[in-house]
Design a binder for these strands. Structure first.
Lengths: 115, 115
DNA sequence: TCCTCGCATAGATCAACATCGAATTAGCCG
DNA sequence: CGGCTAATTCGATGTTGATCTATGCGAGGA
């Protein structure tokens, strides 16, 4: 199942109610974002100038075991927020900006108050 | 703790990495969105023309027990996505657009692809 | 006053999840 | 080939969470 397609087909929350299928798909992505470690991992990758981050760089930023980081990366990858590519011995992770953009559009509020 | 303040202080994910405290706060909100039922509830409230929805209207839209719906409403309220007000025998829920807007800004992608 | 209705809370249960250590795969180099 | 490093997968464990039934509470009506 392609979650990005579901995101693209889901209207902003303020526009009309989501149907069950849309809600299930969107919820999977938000659930992936609903963990502090994954949020930090995502922000590390997303804010990286070159766009790529090696797993070893991420592991060094947390006091968690390497398998745990690997697990979180897998979750982020499964919902289409990250992609990975192996080059030599290292695996590099990269942001999928389309997915992030779709999520942002989904949450667009009628009144953009920054109060 | 005011989650809205944390959201306001958190830069877009693509701008710089979140610190632990920011990530913890933001994750709480996304975790609330990481459930299909809560997403549908939120979209029902958010897309309502008048802006207000009675609990009984929401309960009728799901095949879940009334306490379960009440639980989900509480979660959405605790993270600042909804507010409630009692009038007579009924409780009305209303969207907090600021929170939604902050979340949307947080996810703003560098390339806004609608592909 | 008592009953009824709308909603929230309490307690229990079963599934999902975050985390770890151990084992496994993948690729480099001597 | 043999050993080394990077990363994922596996199995186990403690915790969190979604859901239910039963109960409590507030407000209006008979």
């Amino acid at each position: 199942m392609d979650l990005l397609e579901i995101l693209e087909c889901s209207p902003p929350l303020t526009h009309e109610p989501l149907d069950s299928e849309q809600a299930a798909g969107v919820a999977r992505v938000f659930k992936a974002l609903g963990d502090p470690v994954r949020l930090r991992i995502l922000s590390i990758v997303a804010s990286r100038a070159g766009g790529e981050v090696c797993v070893c760089d991420i592991t060094g930023a947390f006091e968690l075991s390497q398998p745990t980081i690997s697990h979180h990366l897998k979750v982020l990858k499964e919902v289409g927020l990250l992609t990975s590519e192996r080059r030599a011995s290292w695996v590099y992770y990269r942001l999928v900006p389309e997915t992030l953009g779709e999520l942002s559009a989904l949450l667009t509020a009628p009144v953009t108050a920054t109060a």
